[in-house]
Amino acid sequence: MTLAREPVLYEGALAKRGQPYDEDYLVIEAGEEVGIKVEITLVIDSHRLTVLARSHSYAFPDA
């Protein structure tokens, strides 16, 4: 991520995670949609940001 073409450094807590368990995975069936909202200001100083609004959609071919 950049701001005015300069890298924005992560200033939040660092954590190491172990290997995921089977129940940590989410099965997404063909044609199903999944969305998530993230509060980016919890990890980045919002006073330094000018515009940070993106939406991405990914389409996976039916298996």
Results as ranks from 00 to 15, higher is better:
46 S>I: 07
35 G>A: 01
10 Y>K: 10
62 D>L: 09
22 D>G: 11
22 D>W: 11
40 I>V: 13
50 T>D: 10
60 F>L: 00
43 V>T: 00
37 K>I: 01
62 D>S: 05
26 L>R: 04
48 R>S: 12
26 L>Q: 00
23 E>Y: 10
11 E>I: 04
40 I>Y: 08
48 R>M: 12
33 E>R: 02
40 I>A: 13
33 E>F: 00
62 D>T: 02
8 V>F: 15
1 M>Q: 05
45 D>C: 01
27 V>D: 08
26 L>E: 08
25 Y>S: 09
48 R>F: 10
13 A>M: 10
25 Y>E: 02
62 D>P: 03
42 L>S: 14
56 H>I: 02
16 K>E: 11
40 I>D: 13
2 T>I: 06
32 E>R: 02
57 S>D: 04
34 V>W: 01
56 H>K: 00
50 T>A: 11
44 I>A: 03
27 V>S: 08
6 E>F: 07
21 Y>H: 14
17 R>K: 11
16 K>W: 10
51 V>W: 12
61 P>E: 08
62 D>Q: 04
58 Y>K: 04
53 A>R: 07
50 T>I: 12
16 K>R: 12
11 E>P: 14
8 V>D: 09
30 A>Y: 04
49 L>F: 09
51 V>D: 14
38 V>H: 05
39 E>M: 02
44 I>D: 03
42 L>T: 13
45 D>L: 04
34 V>L: 01
